[in-house]
């Protein structure tokens, strides 16, 4: 446990001092600033537009963090053989995986918390400027939606770690993770389309394709589960049960990937 924590700490420090962070942070702050400046152009529902833009900024910044910084935190270790040094210490391979995951998660949480703070400030500012146009806005739902941006990134990070244990280059990891992300965001639409009555009536979906789709819906993460932006934007109620389910889903999926990553990593050779 101590070595896991120690590894998580240096991973976190290595990530948080990365210069790319400034760029990503600046970009997110720019988006938030843009939000403040364009809010006045909308006639009504400024609250909705604000929430949309804030969540998108968090989401976009988070994805950049995962794909440009987090991938490197793991893959550069292997590419540059730093992992040889780390593994020469009394750290098991699965401890390494968990330590890295913890570090990256900490890094993402702290970075996003920082951006979230700014995002809250812009919302507070706009609330003060246009109090009449924030009809259905609720802080609670916004916090839930923002937290689930982090949950989504946590699942994505588990995917990244999993792929870095089976590939030898960070580029391949990047491509696979990006592919999984895109598939994960779109899978729900595809599955429901294929399941819809129109499609089945016409038998465009053969039985075997249906099975493939069913299996895929278990294999790939459904990232839309973590998307509460619509609820936050329109102030719609979020069922507690839905939050619990989504959290359990995220936890289960990530834990399985990390355990598998640990198994694969233990068998892996570093040449």
């Amino acid at each position: 446990m101590r070595s896991v924590v120690a590894l998580a700490i240096i991973t976190f420090k290595e990530g948080i001092r990365n210069r790319a962070l400034f760029g990503i942070g600046l970009m997110a702050l720019f988006l938030l600033g843009l939000n403040v400046s364009v809010a006045g152009f909308f006639m009504r529902d400024i609250g909705k537009v604000t929430v949309d833009m804030n969540l998108s900024a968090l989401n976009f910044a988070g994805l950049l963090l995962v794909f440009f910084v987090a991938i490197n935190l793991m893959a550069k270790d292997i590419d540059r053989k730093t992992i040889h040094l780390v593994l020469s210490k009394p750290i098991s391979r699965s401890q390494y995986v968990w330590g890295k995951y913890g570090g990256i998660l900490l890094f993402l949480s702290v970075s996003l918390a920082f951006l979230f703070l700014f995002s809250c400030l812009t919302i507070a500012l706009l609330l003060a400027l246009y109090p009449d146009y924030f009809g259905a806005f609720s802080w609670g739902q916004f916090v839930v939606a923002a937290t689930f941006v982090l949950v989504k990134l946590a699942v994505l990070t588990a995917i990244v770690l999993f792929f870095s244990t089976i590939t030898t280059s960070s580029l391949v990891t990047l491509i696979f993770s990006l592919g999984s992300y895109i598939a994960g965001v779109t899978i729900e639409e595809v599955v429901f389309y294929l399941k819809s009555d129109w499609a089945t009536q016409e038998r465009v979906v053969s039985e075997s394709l249906r099975t493939v789709i069913d299996v895929l819906s278990y294999l790939l993460p459904n990232f839309t589960v973590f998307d509460f932006s619509l609820e936050a934007a329109h102030g719609l109620p979020i069922a507690f049960e839905r939050i619990v389910l989504a959290l359990g889903y995220a936890g289960g999926y990530s834990a399985i990937l990390l355990l598998l990553a640990g198994f694969i990593f233990a068998r892996r050779e570093f040449n």
Binding site: I10, K13, E14, R17, N18, R80, K81, T82, H84, L85, S88
Partner: peptide, 13 residues
Amino acid sequence: GYLPENPYLYDHL
């Protein structure tokens, strides 16, 4: 105790 060839340590630590 192990010292690899051309050790790459963490850049930002």
